[in-house]
Design a protein around this nucleic acid. Structure first.
Lengths: 342, 342
DNA sequence: AGTATATACCAAAACGTTTTGGATGTCAAT
DNA sequence: ATTGACATCCAAAACGTTTTGGTATATACT
């Protein structure tokens, strides 16, 4: 079928050892032979058999990524961007990316075990960390290379990149207070996600600096989808004292909230302000454009991938922990709250 | 390191041949031995080395998918859904999915060649077909298994799944005519994409049935992003005779158009109607919810993947060509056009 | 008793690489 | 003439499977 190192060896009258070493640019093969071999390899259209290489080298040159999605259909643009960031960097570094999607739970753990035990991947990227994260426990117990995007309760035992959600939400709080808002609703993800409490705390503390209380009745837990933003947004708007601003913990839910607001004939950014978190590409072109906290997800993907490859190659002596300061992007979904208006 | 077939063989005092055959459920090994081997394999935590298997079997059990994205950051929810559909089906069938993103052009072709020549994948899924599609030409010339999502000029030489865009756009045309619209703008992708002209033709012919002309000046070519929908939508709205309805060839551009409309203080679905194509999950929760043509992208992903695996396994005697009839989802972004209003 | 058939097993080759541990030849220094 | 150093090359083993082409034993049929 396809041409192998053996075919080249035959053609140039050298051993397969020499051909292999020439192709890998070892210096115990004469420049002329090297030239010749490289040339004929190209002529014959040689390209190495990845599986033979991996079998022999006992490494997979593959990074594993298991996306935790609730439905099998994942359509969070946030993940697409992350995926692109990781995937492109992996390709640059000569790694394959093995992706699958599993919803959190037993099957998910199985998937990790299978990939680790089958020698299928050299390392993992764990995303959307949880407070007691069985994935991380497992990988630590096996001493298997991984990098997390996000922290856990006890996270100085591994390398991670995370955005400072506490800080980001304080920016949101300050922004809203500056616009006269004082009744604030918040739509969060499920509490087991590691970033949930950090973001709530950031908002709460940020508001308390200005003596505004975040009423627990005004905190609703959703599932990060637009649908849940819509439904919980509606619940918040139906409370006796309507919130003047609703803070969603991701952009997708914020879009849902905006729909709920607009459905009631209210104007987003005037009657009710809405904020998001992530700054996915769509947020710039929603109506109105969304005020949100910018996370450089694509770059985070690159960074995480790069760190992992360093760990795999043993170039990292100790755990590296990176916390990124996000920034607030002010657009038109937030505005001054005018007491007279309602 | 990890346990191999050899370790099991030693433990149960059989040859590695027997162990291998037991694990693969051959019937020339006695039930007792088979039992014993299966049991010890589980006990020892054996899982086969994928690369050794693939090297020996001379197949990769891997499907290649190269997403043609213009920027490296792809965030079209359409692709995420397709990816999920393909990926989950591939996993079910025991295949890996090797994904990368390349923008159309030289590098993209290189990527295909590399994967084919390196024996890296057993087959390809080619998405978003183009009129003269070099990817398809290449794969045909190599006689390499693939399935396309979309057709080309000359497409009875391979298997594909496609949605009937011509039909879908006729539905849109009928819907809009039924709502009294008569000045219609259209925002398309670049003309080299195979579906572009089909969709335009569907719209044009659909309108002509009711004696409404689609003025070429009202057709603008974008790049499928929200941004380009926004910009080209603005151009259409600035024409001397403002369109009463704008038809976008995908949902993302439709969102952009809605922003442009709303920015001018006009109401979508009343002053200007807007339609999309794809029915991505967000479309149900945009404001207003988007009238669009539904494509079952997730299922299409599954189907395409299943077809490809059949081709790889030689279970398909001749090319299979599937054309899906899409359906119109009427939501609130379209409404009756009332001449007096403007 | 001899032949055929079925059952249970296995040694060795193969897949395409890389790596190990030399071998051979040349040249310069002793 | 030896020795050592260096440059260039290679045979064979190894990675972990599956497959090929058997063998050996027991049972059943003439």
């Amino acid at each position: 079928m396809s041409v192998s190192i053996k075919d080249i060896a035959k053609r140039v009258n050298r051993s397969i050892t020499t051909v292999s070493r020439a192709l890998n640019d070892y210096d115990d093969v004469s420049p002329e032979t090297k030239q010749l071999i490289l040339k004929t390899a190209k002529e014959m259209g040689y390209s190495p058999n990845t599986f033979a290489q991996r079998l022999q080298k006992q490494q997979s040159d593959t990074i594993g990524l298991i996306l935790p999605t609730f439905s099998p259909r994942f359509s969070d643009p946030y993940f697409s961007e992350l995926l692109a960031g990781i995937g492109n960097k992996a390709a640059d570094l000569g790694f394959d990316l093995l992706v699958s999607t599993r919803s959190p739970g037993f099957e998910e753990n199985k998937a990790y075990e299978k990939m680790v035990e089958g020698g299928r991947v050299d390392g993992f990227i764990v995303v959307r960390t949880r407070n007691q994260d069985t994935r991380i426990e497992y990988l630590l117990s096996k001493n298997f290379p991984f990098v997390a995007f996000g922290r856990t309760d006890d996270c100085n035992r591994f390398s991670y990149v995370d955005e400072d959600g506490y800080y980001g939400m304080q920016l949101v709080a300050e922004h809203l207070v500056g616009l006269n808002h004082d009744v604030i609703g918040c739509i969060t993800p499920k509490p087991d996600l590691a970033f949930t409490e950090k973001r709530i705390a950031g908002l709460r503390d940020g508001l308390e600096k200005y003596n505004i209380k975040l009423d627990p009745a005004y905190i609703k837990a959703g599932d990060l989808t637009q649908r849940s933003g819509y439904e919980l947004g509606a619940e918040l708007l139906d409370l006796s004292e309507t919130p003047t601003a609703i803070v969603a913990c991701n952009d997708l839910m914020a879009f849902g909230v905006m729909s709920a607001v607009q459905e009631r004939g209210l104007v987003v950014g005037k009657d009710v302000s809405v904020t998001g978190f992530d700054d996915i590409p769509m947020s710039e072109y929603s109506h109105p454009p969304l005020t949100t906290v910018h996370q450089p997800v694509y770059q985070i993907g690159s960074m995480v991938c790069e760190m992992l490859v360093k760990i795999i190659r043993d170039e990292l002596s100790e755990h590296q922990q990176i916390l990124l300061k996000p920034s607030l992007i002010e657009r038109q979904s937030t505005g001054i709250y005018d007491k007279r208006a309602i």
